[in-house]
Every structure is written in structure tokens, then in C-alpha cells.
Design a protein around this nucleic acid. Structure first.
Lengths: 346, 346
DNA sequence: TTCAGGAATGAAAACGTTTACATTCCGTGC
DNA sequence: GCACGGAATGTAAACGTTTTCATTCCTGAA
């Protein structure tokens, strides 16, 4: 292994000068600097991070503790974090796919002493968990977590705002009786989405709501659709708490020969990749996941720089309504004319 | 910051004993060990990775250098790597989304001195690149890269074998005239897939092939479909080099009222998530991405343990044909009865 | 009682780097 | 010609941990 000493010998200077030349330019003659750089290149010298960290007390790395995430969401989140981290010269230590709190705890502990800060996203994490497994001295930002830990900054998705925006959009289209397919009971996102819908309906004269149980699965959306069809009168619109349920509901409606959006409008939440391929393409709420990661990292860096300020704030990332064809309306029905029929396999 | 010295003082022993007690159990009295553990817990001591690495000359971390990958593929790959890494007590340093060779070079250089080994997947990487930017001493495994660097182990996807298997499957169903929609010119995967198809057709009496240009985009698949429809006689089957093109082709066929699979069979490659939602669900070749990551990490660990053996081998991960409905046949048409029509938005 | 020998623990070196402080060197003003 | 000052470079301490070697302590055999 080639160390700074080897470079020093090769360039006939002291290690201190090598260090100065190779790091930020202190005062070192252009000639010596060039000589040192040549020597370093010739020897293929790469500084050992550990030694550097030991003395600078900085690892130049941040950790990301993530739960078991599905395709799109995970990739985009990491992309957002990674890109932002790179602009700060930070490395990214990833620990993902934690099924339960114990796994998360082990991972979180293992990270400490190797990173300058942590991004934590986990359903298992609460104030007690953090106090137990995370040193107070290490900066951390919580992603998409209930603001139950008042001493740490949070960056959350604005589920409620998104649901509000979508509901307003539906109302603006003239829909009055709207059915809402709920997400799973315990789920916080689901609860917030419902609340956004609820609020908006309550604030709007003449609007009526109906609630159907669901659990985020396509199956449950399908059942909700059947339940609606069984009623004597269809609502004007259906707003599902996520896209999968919207798709399930769409199946039920299609099966019954009910036209979307002509006879009933349909909206989802998440903007999963398939959403643009359904027929009609699904109007839904888009969450900018990469942005979420980006924002979280920036918040963490800010926290790392002002070590003294354990300011605990909550940033919420806005969601936007993506208008496609499933709610009818003035949508720019920009279809290419090509159609694919899709059927669910299982 | 609480160090090992603090723990030593607290437990009234020397730092050496603390180290011994906390690491693998050397010989230390149960009583002292307990005392030390209590002290460490009380003080919330976490060993500093850098200091440890400095003396052990191990970082207990591996790096993953990845290109700009899309949803599913990226998540699964990381999952596979991460899970395998965890079983070895290794941390995972991720650096992704590299657009060009220069970015990859910077990232690769930055990683060195912080990891014990690297997993590299990048279209920009070749032997010259590695020799220039990667120290010989650091173990590395190349993922899904052309085996152009003979001194490093590779773990690749068996594109050729997958294409072969699918072609055999189509032939077994009785299809004889098969059209192949090619991937982009320069693409290695695409070339291998074509080769697998070609070989199998050539080896089969009475089989005939026809080749259509494509570039992996849905659009190009649609064009290929139109081209087929323009001919005087449809082939028995179409095998697209990826799912997106298969879906594009399906659009064209649907539009023309051609029934899939009754009038023509259709197969894809990749098994992207949407593949199971098309109508009919798409028979395709599944790549076990998580397994790929897993295998690559295991190979890297092996390489790291036997430092002296720079054995350069190529592991290929098998692909498997996933039978759905788009090729007709004895497929277990296990549809749930629910159908979603899908249309492409843009 | 003495001493050998082994088990538990301590002292200190080493790891590669940064950086405060010391040293050298050179030019400039007197 | 000398002292002074500043720029360039060198010396050595420090970072927190592991580990080799030394030391202490205890047990049991002679």
C-alpha cells in the first residue's frame, strides 16, 4: 500500500508538504506542487480515508437508513440523495430493506462512527427508538416520519395537501358526490390523505362524500368498485388513496361496462409508472421523490454545519395533480393513438 | 465524543481490555466483560470506524459504482447487494447515476481508500479505464460488463441464454416463422439477445427468422409492428428484444385488430413490472436482478478473502422464461377475471 | 514454602494523515 | 553587512483503536 510517506520520499519533500499540496492549496510553490502531484500520480497514491477521518474528525459520509421499499420509490429517493450528496462531496452509505425495528436498530448502530449524519426513514422509528440507538451528537433528519421526535428535523410528503389539491380539482370539474377509497387503517400516509379529502369536502357547499374501506391493494380497490356498482346510484367521482386501488376500481368499472370518465371520474395517488398506461390514463397525485431525497440531504447538511442548532423543523414536499384522462374534463388528451389493453394477471 | 478511554476509565480497566471485551471475545473474565459492557452502554459508546480501520487496515465497506439506472432494476440490484453485504457485516457505499466516463472516474477515485472492494457496473468502464483509475490492489468485480478486462472477475446476465430459452419455447409451441425486433445497434445486451435468437433458429430445421430494427423504445416496437402488418403474411410469432418494444408492437397489433395470441404470438425480454398487466399478459424473459447483485457481492467477498488470487472468471446469471398469455399455449391462464384497459399517454 | 505456569490485564507501539509549531531560507531595508 | 520578516518547508504531536509484548496475579505441584 502506498502512503503519503512514499509520495514524500519520491518527491523529496516532507509529508506535511505533500499533504498541503494535495489538499486545498495552502502555501506551496507551484514547482513543488507539480513535483508532488507527479510523484503521487506515478505511485498511484490514494489517501486513506480512515487516517484522514481520524484526525479531521469528519468521515465525509452520510448514512441512509431505509425500510423495505419498492422499485420506483427507492430508486428515485436514492438518486435524489446521491446527487445532492455529491455536490457536497459526501459519500452515501446505504442500509436498506429493514423489516423490523430490531434490524433497523442494528443497522443504525453499525452506521455510527462511520458517518457525519444520517437520513432515517422507517416506520419503526420513534422518539424512544432514536434516543436509544442514536447518539445525540450525530445529526439526523427524518424522512416521511410522523413528527413524533421533536428534537430532530423532518422532511415529509405533503399527503394532506396533495389530497386536498386533487379533491379541489375534482370539485372544480363539477363533481359533487365523491367516493373515497381509503388506505390501510394504521397507515399514516393513508390517514393524511383521507384527512385532506375530508377537509376539502367539508369546506365545500353541496359536496358529499362516501368512504370505502381499502388497504392499498389492487384487490381492495376492485372490491370497492364492486361495492359502488352495487349501490343504486354511482357517485360522480372516485378518489382512491393510491393508484393501485384506483386501478383495481377501474377493473371493476370496466367489467360492468361503466365508462370512465364519461359516466364516472376516477383519480389516484402516487403516480406510479403504470398510471400513465391505464385506459384511460389515470389522473393522479404526483410525489416528487427525488426532490424529497434532495431536500432531506440539504437539510441534513445544514444541520451538520450548524452543529449547535438542533432546530427541529418540518419541511413538507408539495405534491402535484397530474391531469390525465380519467377524470374527463379539459385534459389535454394527448394520446398518441396507440393503445395497449392491459389485464391483470394475478 | 466518547472514546474507548472514557469507557476504560468508567469501567476501571485499561483500553486494551475494553477493546478485547467489546470485540470478539478474547480472554476476559465474564465479570469484567459485564462491567465494561455496562459502562459502554451507560456512556453510549460507539467505536469510531476510522480509528479502527486505520489499525486493522479494513474498512468493512464495499463500494458500488452504478450508472444511471431506472426504477426496478436499480432497487433490486441494491437490495441484492445490500442483503448479501449485511450477512458479511459489510457496509455499502453507493455512488450512482453516472452519466459519463469522467463522472464515473471521479466517483471511483473518491471511493478508494474508503472501501475494501468495489462492484462496478458502467458502460464507460473498460480495461484502460480501470487501469487508470483503480488501484491494482483493490478487489473489484464487474457487473454486466463486457469481459474486456481479463484481470477482473465478472458477473453477467445471460442474455444469450435467455433469448435462446425463449426462442426454444416459441419453437416448442409450434411457431416456425419468427420475427425478432432488435435492440439498439451498439448495445451489448441487445447484441447478445439477438445472437441467442439467431443461434437457436439456425439450429432448428424449418424455422425462419426475420429481423426488424428497434432501439428499445416503445415507439420503435410500434413501428416494427406496423412494418409486420404491412407485409403480406404475418409471422407466427414476434420476439422483441425488450418488453417496451413488445408493448409497442402489441399496440400496433391491437390497433389493427390482430388477436394476440390467437393470430400471432408475442414475447418480450426483461419482465418489467408492467409486463404482467398488458392484455394479454406478456410472456417474457425474467432477469433475477437481486440475485445478480447477490452473486456479485459474494464473488467480491471471495476475491477479498483470497487476496493473492486475482482469478478472473465470468459468472453468468441465468434468465428464465415467464409464461403468461401472450404466446397462447398451455399457459396457466390464471387471470383473476379483472381487466384493465391500458392506453399509452404520450 | 517456593516456584512454575497459565490466565487476566496493562503499557505502549503502530496505523496514515493533518496541523500547530519550529525551522530554514531568501530578499529587503537600514 | 546585518537584522528582520515573511514565505516555504520540516518536525512532531495528535487522532482512537487494535495488538504485541510485558506484567501481575493466582493456582497448584514439589
Amino acid at each position: 500500500m502506498v502512503t503519503i510517506k512514499d509520495v514524500a520520499r519520491e518527491a523529496k519533500v516532507s509529508v506535511a508538504t505533500v499533504s498541503r499540496a494535495l489538499n486545498g492549496s495552502a502555501d506551496v510553490t507551484p514547482a513543488t506542487r507539480a513535483r508532488i502531484e507527479r510523484a503521487a500520480a506515478r505511485l498511484r497514491y490514494v489517501p486513506m480515508g480512515a487516517a484522514r477521518s481520524l484526525v479531521t474528525r469528519r468521515t465525509q459520509a452520510i448514512g441512509a437508513l431505509l425500510p423495505d421499499l419498492f422499485g420506483e420509490f427507492f430508486s428515485e429517493l436514492i438518486r435524489g440523495i446521491d446527487l445532492a450528496a455529491r455536490t457536497h462531496g459526501l459519500h452515501l452509505l446505504v442500509s436498506s430493506s429493514h423489516g423490523d425495528a430490531d434490524e433497523a436498530a442494528v443497522a443504525l448502530r453499525a452506521m455510527q462512527g462511520r458517518v457525519d449524519g444520517v437520513l432515517i426513514m422507517s416506520p419503526h422509528v420513534d422518539a424512544a427508538f432514536l434516543r436509544k440507538h442514536l447518539a445525540d451528537s450525530i445529526p439526523a433528519v427524518l424522512l416521511d416520519s410522523p413528527p413524533r421526535e421533536p428534537r430532530r428535523p423532518h422532511v415529509n410528503i405533503d399527503n394532506q395537501g396533495g389530497a386536498r389539491a386533487m379533491t379541489q380539482y375534482l370539485l372544480a370539474l363539477g363533481h359533487r358526490k365523491i367516493a373515497f377509497i381509503e388506505g390501510p387503517e394504521g397507515n399514516r400516509d393513508a390517514r393524511e390523505r383521507r384527512r385532506g379529502f375530508e377537509q376539502t369536502i367539508a369546506a365545500h357547499d353541496g359536496a358529499g362524500a362516501r368512504y370505502l374501506k381499502g388497504d392499498y391493494s389492487e384487490e381492495s380497490g376492485y372490491r370497492a368498485g364492486r361495492a359502488l356498482l352495487a349501490g343504486r346510484k354511482l357517485p360522480d367521482a372516485v378518489f382512491a388513496a393510491n393508484d393501485m386501488m384506483a386501478i383495481g376500481c377501474l377493473s371493476a368499472l370496466n367489467e360492468a361496462g361503466v365508462q370512465v370518465p364519461d359516466q364516472i371520474a376516477l383519480a389516484g395517488f402516487d403516480d406510479i409508472p403504470i398510471a400513465r398506461y391505464t385506459h384511460p390514463p389515470l389522473t393522479t397525485v404526483h410525489v416528487q421523490i427525488a426532490q424529497l431525497g434532495h431536500a432531506a440531504l440539504e437539510r441534513l447538511v445544514a444541520q451538520m454545519q450548524t452543529l449547535d442548532t438542533p432546530e427541529a423543523d418540518v419541511t413538507t414536499m408539495p405534491c402535484e395533480v397530474v391531469v390525465r384522462a380519467s377524470c374527463g374534463s379539459r385534459s389535454k388528451t394527448s394520446g398518441s393513438g396507440k393503445a395497449v389493453q392491459i389485464r391483470k394477471l394475478q
